[in-house]
Design a protein around this nucleic acid. Structure first.
Length: 186
DNA sequence: CGTTTTTGACCAGCGC
DNA sequence: GCGCTGGTCAAAAACG
């Protein structure tokens, strides 16, 4: 059981907000997915990174971007009204995208996601779905997109970090090992 | 009955 | 300043 806690290194003291990167997608990344952090370019020029052959298995550990996680308050902000212009900053958010070969869009990474939007993207016939972690205080978001060229490729973009452990009672030992492997890489 | 999905509208950022 | 595009909200429907 304690194996889960390895996801969140005991940084103790400091870092009021989660400062430890969590990669829920590790479960799929370990397979054959091409990971890359999206900071500026990515789904812009209909990336042809992946041919019909296979995707590269490469996990990017951009610790630089991760440390820049200045997420907003956990859950207390009810930002909605257009008039409320009392926002402070909303610069860049570290995002991590994964290209995974999958027949289905729903990639169950162990977390609970709630769909909150869907938009049609240009240059892509398939819509993009927006999900948010349902855990209270967890502002992690993710969006799932499908490539027009290769419908077999699903691009999952994660944003933010989970402030809790995986809510999946039926977890495989293999799953844990995979995640441990990822963190060992750091 | 509680939670999640659907769906249109709204808003902010950017380019022209 | 206007229009386009991406991202989010929120009400109602759908689902268990």
């Amino acid at each position: 059981m304690d194996g889960y806690h390895i996801l969140f290194p005991p940084s103790s003291s400091s870092s009021a907000s989660a400062a430890s990167p969590s990669f829920p997608f590790a479960h799929y990344a370990y397979k054959n997915a091409h990971a890359f952090h999206t900071g500026s370019e990515m789904m812009n020029h209909s990336n042809e990174t992946c041919s019909s052959s296979e995707v590269k298995g490469e996990l990017i550990n951009s610790h630089t971007d991760v440390s820049q996680d200045d997420e907003d308050k956990a859950g207390s902000d009810k930002k909605k009204g257009p008039s409320s212009s009392s926002e402070k900053k909303k610069p860049r958010k570290p995002r991590y995208a994964f290209q995974t070969r999958s027949q289905v869009d729903i990639l169950d990474d162990g977390y609970r996601w709630r769909k909150y939007g869907q938009k049609a993207v240009k240059n892509n016939r398939f819509p993009r779905s927006y999900y948010k972690c349902t855990f209270q205080g967890c502002n992690v978001k993710k969006q799932v997109q499908r490539l027009t060229k290769d419908e077999g490729v699903v691009v999952t973009t994660y944003e933010g970090m989970h402030t809790h452990s995986i809510d999946k009672p039926t977890d495989n030992f293999e799953h844990i090992l995979n995640q441990m492997h990822i963190y060992n890489h750091f």
